[in-house]
Design a protein around this nucleic acid. Structure first.
Length: 458
RNA sequence: GGCUCGAUGGCAGAGUGGUGAUGCAGGGGACUGCAAAUCCCCGUACGUCGGUUCAAUUCCGGCUCGAGCCUCCA
């Protein structure tokens, strides 16, 4: 298996430190608002990676955190006049619902910052003790000059970074690049007791502490969105390496490319965010998931209505092949080698999907029952690795296009179909076609097959 | 301004130093009462200018355009 490592800038052979326990950490959401479709990309991509790894390794410990201490959360809570827990629990639930709809399996561990304060504090103490960090005016800062490898991950020169920095440098910093590990809270802000007074952790230390607590000093894979490379992952790397006597923190750094809207980054300031739940009103979650896997994970992906419609049509084809195979009992065949090879080549989902379509064509052409059984099993097993094609074809074709869409009920459809078959038997094709056109106008496509009429929602 | 990554047919999107993945759309045919679905056939795509090479879309360099980071951000 090969994975592209941001640190080296190239694809590398993947070999876990301990094949009996593969460890993976992915930065999860800050729960202060609804998740948008851009947030869904890493969740889906790394979900696929976890599935692929689990096929090969007996145990994959996948940790994806929930950031439930953050100034944006504080702002949201203050605005509503509620405790931060009200905000964080609400949006954690919503995040779970949204990802469930996209078929994203829960990670092995889903730690919250509020559950790891003791660990964070102990890590900060260790960093101060070994000279990597210092306390100043109620803050604790990590001294970037103490870590020679600073800038290696994001390929930045520290001096250039300082020169180009647009932020004002706080007077208590020893070096302009130093970043906060702990900061003081005012009495009206959420805070926790610490050796440096009542305060709260900085953004970067939480991931280092939780990764250490759940996965150990050295982890195999660290993932996240490309925007996290700097400063978040650069800082995590510095902290963890410094806290562990120079031991490697993450062996493979994986970063997914951005999702754009009309070729522009999705962001609240631009006003072009598209929430996952808004999309789900008009499209099945499975189609959203496939749309996210259409391009390679490291490439930028432009989101638009056509991409989503395209994904639906692809699923129509795939489910259509499974449906037309009828009731053949699937054999125990597994996904073919070419499909696995594509996914094990740095998660090349477009190439894997191409293999899946080849299987579908073969299934459509197959006439032998044993051959069909093998192909059905292969398609389902391959689909499972992508988190797709696990429903019955009948469910796929009869489901409405989203949580908000409407259309004639199944009872109505069945009644219309009965009338149409009667018209057809009487060779009244004009009436039969009228019924078909009428249903089509209402979003239901009727098809005649060798097994009689069948329908699907458009 | 500095850094990183891209530019493939009507659209989306892999890949490769020398036989044009895959899906959608489009054209032709088979099948069908007609459709739909399915199957078969059909496209001289690799931003631009140079270089290396017997041969470049694929390697190297310039240019143009695009995305991202340098500030919270998936």
């Amino acid at each position: 298996m090969q994975l592209h490592n941001t640190l080296s800038g190239r694809k590398e052979d993947f070999a876990p430190l301990n094949p009996e326990r593969v460890t993976m950490y992915v930065c999860g959401p800050t729960v202060y608002s609804f998740a948008h479709i851009g947030n869904a990309r890493p969740a889906v991509v790394f979900d696929v990676l976890a599935r692929v790894l689990r096929r090969r390794y007996p145990r994959v410990d996948y940790t994806r955190n929930i950031t439930d201490i953050d100034d944006k959360i504080n702002a949201a809570a203050a605005k509503e006049g509620v405790a931060i827990k009200v905000i964080t629990e609400r949006y954690t639930d919503i995040y779970h619902e949204d990802l469930d709809a996209l078929g994203v399996a829960r990670p092995t561990y889903e730690p919250k910052v509020t559950e790891h304060l003791a660990h964070i504090i102990s890590m900060v103490e260790r960093l101060i003790a070994n000279g990597s960090a210092y306390a100043a005016e109620g803050h604790v800062l990590f001294n970037v000059t103490s870590y020679a490898g600073y800038g290696e991950l994001s390929k930045r020169d520290r001096r250039e970074m300082i020169a180009g920095a647009r932020v004002e440098v706080a007077p208590y910093k020893k070096d302009p690049g130093d970043f906060v590990l702990w900061k003081p809270s005012t009495p009206d802000q959420p805070g926790w007791e610490s050796p440096w007074g009542r305060g709260r952790p900085g953004w970067h230390i939480e991931c280092s502490a939780m990764a250490e607590a759940l996965l150990g000093d050295t982890i195999d894979i660290h993932g996240g969105g490309h925007d996290l490379v700097f400063p978040h992952h650069e800082n995590e790397r510095a902290q963890s390496t410094a806290a562990h006597d120079g031991k490697t923190f993450a062996r493979y750094w994986l970063h997914n490319g951005f999702l754009t809207m009309d070729s522009e980054k999705m962001s609240k300031s631009v006003g072009n965010v598209l929430l996952i739940r808004e999309i789900l009103k008009a499209a099945p979650g499975e189609a959203v998931r496939l749309a996210l896997l259409t391009g390679h994970y490291r490439q930028p992906l432009d989101w638009n209505d056509e991409a989503l419609a395209d994904a639906r049509r692809k699923l129509d084809r795939l489910y259509g092949a499974l449906r037309d195979a009828g009731d053949v009992a699937a054999s125990d065949a597994k996904a073919p080698d070419a499909f696995i090879a594509a996914l094990e080549d740095d998660i090349n989902t477009p190439a894997a999907l191409a293999e899946l379509f080849e299987l579908a064509r073969a299934l459509n052409k197959a006439s032998d029952a044993a051959e069909k059984a093998t192909l059905v099993a292969q398609i389902k097993d391959a689909g499972a690795l992508l988190g797709l094609l696990q429903q019955n074809p009948g469910e796929w074709f009869s489901q409405s296009s989203g949580t908000a869409s409407e259309g004639p009920s199944e009872t109505e459809i069945e009644a219309a179909l009965a009338a149409r078959i009667a018209a057809k038997t009487a060779k009244d094709y004009k009436e039969a076609d009228r019924i078909r056109d009428d249903l089509k106008a209402r979003g239901v496509l009727v098809e005649d097959s060798k097994d009689g009429q069948r329908w699907r929602r458009l």
